Simulated scan of single mutants.
Amino acid sequence: MIDSTAEKLLLIKLKEGSFQAFEKLYTMYSGKLYNFIMRLSSGNQYMAEEVVQTTFIRIWEVRGKVDPDASFISFLCTIAKNLLMNMYQRQTVEYVYNEYLMKSAADRDSQTEDTIDLRFLNDYIDSLAEELPAQRKKIFILSKRQNYTNKEIAEMMGISESTVATQLSLAVKFMREQMMKHYDKVIALLFAFFVNEM
């Protein structure tokens, strides 16, 4: 049972900008939030980990709006559910986009522009990683390119899991913001796909 008085004190400190309070709250609630998302996502561990990370970075970003007198776990769950819904929507777009690329590859004998586009996007992600601070870049590569867990990365780098989660979430947030600059291109390809299928 989490002491409500201690929680309220941590929330007040978080609201004032205490990263130490943030890490304590992460330790207290990340496991509960992970289990909650695992139930909502039918046991999807990748989604659960991504949502937990992104939820807590969102908490840090809006820490000034946190209400110490309100239920923190309800606040966390509301953010997490919205993020999970966004992930499902994004996966649907990615699925249709991948289907488009597969169809294009089957229809053409030579290397397609879409394959070039896909390689370009991978190269673009790599170039974005180079813009990250050194520690954040290393965490991103270990997690997203080499598939290490947060716990393994924390042990390798001698830092806390919450620090790994925070840095990884910041890296992913940066990537997503930059990738949105190419969103119009993805939508154009999807539109062409649906027109050709009609």
Rank of each mutant, 00 (worst) to 15 (best):
K137V: 01
R119F: 12
L128H: 03
I116E: 11
D107R: 13
K181E: 14
A165G: 02
N147P: 00
D114Q: 05
S110T: 10
K151Q: 15
I141S: 12
T149K: 13
S169W: 05
A171C: 03
R119G: 08
I125H: 06
V172D: 12
K181S: 14
S162W: 02
E177W: 00
Q135N: 14
T115A: 09
I159D: 13
E177D: 10
D109F: 09
V164Q: 12
E131W: 01
R176P: 00
K144R: 14
M156H: 09
L132M: 14
E161W: 02
K151I: 06
I153Q: 13
L142N: 08
N150C: 03
R145Q: 11
T115G: 05
L142R: 09
L168E: 12
R108V: 10
I139W: 03
E177F: 01
A129M: 05
K151H: 12
K181G: 07
E113W: 07
T115Y: 07
Q111P: 07
Y148C: 07
R119V: 12
I125R: 13
Q146K: 14
T149G: 11
A154Y: 08
F140G: 05
Q146W: 09
K144L: 06
S169K: 03
D114P: 00
Y124M: 07
R119D: 12
I116P: 00
D123W: 06
E161S: 04
M157H: 08
A106I: 06
K151R: 13
T112Y: 05
T166C: 10
Y124V: 05
N147G: 01
S143A: 15
S110M: 06
K151T: 11
V172N: 09
N147C: 02
N122P: 00
I116Q: 08
N150S: 05
T166E: 11
R108W: 04
L170Q: 15
A129D: 09
K173Y: 05
L142Y: 08
K144A: 07
I139F: 04
S169C: 13
S162M: 04
D114I: 01
T149E: 12
E152P: 04
Y183H: 09
N147Y: 06
A129S: 15
K151P: 00
T112A: 02
Q111W: 11
S127M: 02
